[in-house]
């Protein structure tokens, strides 16, 4: 991988990695640091990283850094935070995007991550497996559980409306 490839990766993937991290960690400052760290790591391994796999490399690095930060800070909780949307929320949500934004915050970190990698970046099960170091079976299970959760969340709102 050359310097030109690296700079192209910055221009092409920095925003996507930042979105991915920010959605997971919900802290812009930390998300920015994680993106910086991810690209610094890429720069440090410039010669060993294949240019064709630079996107996966960045997402993988960012994912693991994000998980590390989350666990370190213990800011994220799994299903402890899970709660049904309160009545009246439906009045505030103007579109399904806002509903989903609220719903994915309630997802466990691993489910949220694999679902975003699947929907945001269109990765296959195998690619997500490589990025997250989870097995393909785990990836499938997390995607399934995440979708069911979101569907039930939307359905609950739909019923309330």
């Amino acid at each position: 991988m050359t310097v030109a490839d690296y700079n192209e990766a910055v221009n092409k993937h920095a925003d996507a990695v930042f979105r991915f991290v920010l959605k997971n960690i919900r802290d812009e400052e930390k998300a920015r640091d994680i993106v910086q760290d991810s690209f610094e790591k890429l720069w440090g391994h410039l010669r060993s990283v294949d240019a064709a796999k630079v996107k996966s490399y960045l997402f993988s690095t960012a994912y693991h850094r994000t998980i590390d930060v989350i666990r370190k800070d213990q800011r994220q909780q799994f299903f402890d935070d899970m709660q049904l949307p309160e009545e009246g929320h439906s009045d505030q949500y103007s579109d399904i995007g806002e509903v989903l934004n609220q719903a994915i915050k309630l997802l466990p970190d691993d489910q949220r991550s694999v679902l975003m990698l699947r929907d945001y970046e269109g990765y296959s099960y195998k690619e997500i497996s490589e990025i997250t170091a989870l097995s393909e079976a785990q990836v499938k299970v997390y995607i399934y559980r995440g979708r069911v959760f979101l569907k039930n969340y939307i359905g609950k709102l739909d019923v309330l409306v």
Partner: peptide, 9 residues
């Protein structure tokens, strides 16, 4: 409802 769960960046 399932169809609406697809996330958009």
């Amino acid at each position: 409802w399932f169809a609406k769960t697809r996330l958009n960046p």
